[in-house]
Amino acid sequence: MRRVREISAGTVTETLRDLFIAANLEMGRDMQDALARAAEEEESPLGRYVLQKILENMDVARKESLPLCQDTGLAVVFAEMGQEVHIVGGDFQAAVQEGVRQAYREGYLRKSLCDPLSRRNTGDNTPAVIFTEVVPGDRLKLIAMPKGGGSENMSCSAMLVPAEGKAGIVDHVVACVRKAGSNPCPPVLVGVGIGGSLEMSGVLAKKALLRPLGTANAHDERLAAMEREILEGVNRLGIGPQGYGGRVTALAVHMEMMPCHIASLPVTVNIQCHVARHREAVL
């Protein structure tokens, strides 16, 4: 019989605190490289100017330990909990929320959450949105994803008619990016979730944003082909960096899919700004 492995709630808190602070100060190497390539490839002068400022900002944020963007996000946490893991010394959900609370206080990050009706700020950027999956093994993987409001607002879900098929999906995604225009801080990443249920398509779309930038869907060649087709379509729109015009409207399109009901074709597009932040740790 396999032994239970203990992880303290305090370790969960400390890990998430460090991940959210680090994520807000520096993007992954994949994003940095993609933005540097975009600055070389962009043909519009204003677009190139924007991309150069974005690269300059990465240096300043790193040197001065300042958040890349003032919108340090809604705290989204993905937890993959091995089924042999036992959390000790506290409640898992509370430990996650405490990690977020400490990160936003100690890291001088903006508290951007409020009551939806009174619009009163919650004061500590909690509650985080937490997705927990139980997986085989005795490890706990924690992913911290601060998600900006401007790009989240431009995301869209649709329950397509199955007859619309692949062409309908491609049209829907390109139309969503066109409609978003300059609002979500292009160049964007486009996460697309297909199938499941209404809410699962959204979770798939968000998870797609966590994939290393520009890697094609490894499980399904049909999706990899659609990713290429949509990226080309989006970059023909001419929106460009910050909407000031140009070729680079999106850096990548990532799609994830699962089966759905015979009557349904749920598709969610989750747009991510060019400050595409996420950090992970395995305990």
């Binding site: 924007v50 400022k53 974005i54 300059e56 900002n57 300043v60 944020a61 001065e64 300042l66 958040p67 890349l68 963007c69 003032q70 919108d71 401007g150 300059s182 801080c185 910050q242 909407g243 000031y244 700004c273 060019h274 400050v275």
Partner: peptide, 13 residues
């Protein structure tokens, strides 16, 4: 006027 979004460390200067 448009300010560039996502360059907030630079703008703070």
């Amino acid at each position: 006027f448009g300010a560039i979004g996502g360059i907030a460390a630079l703008t703070a200067r």
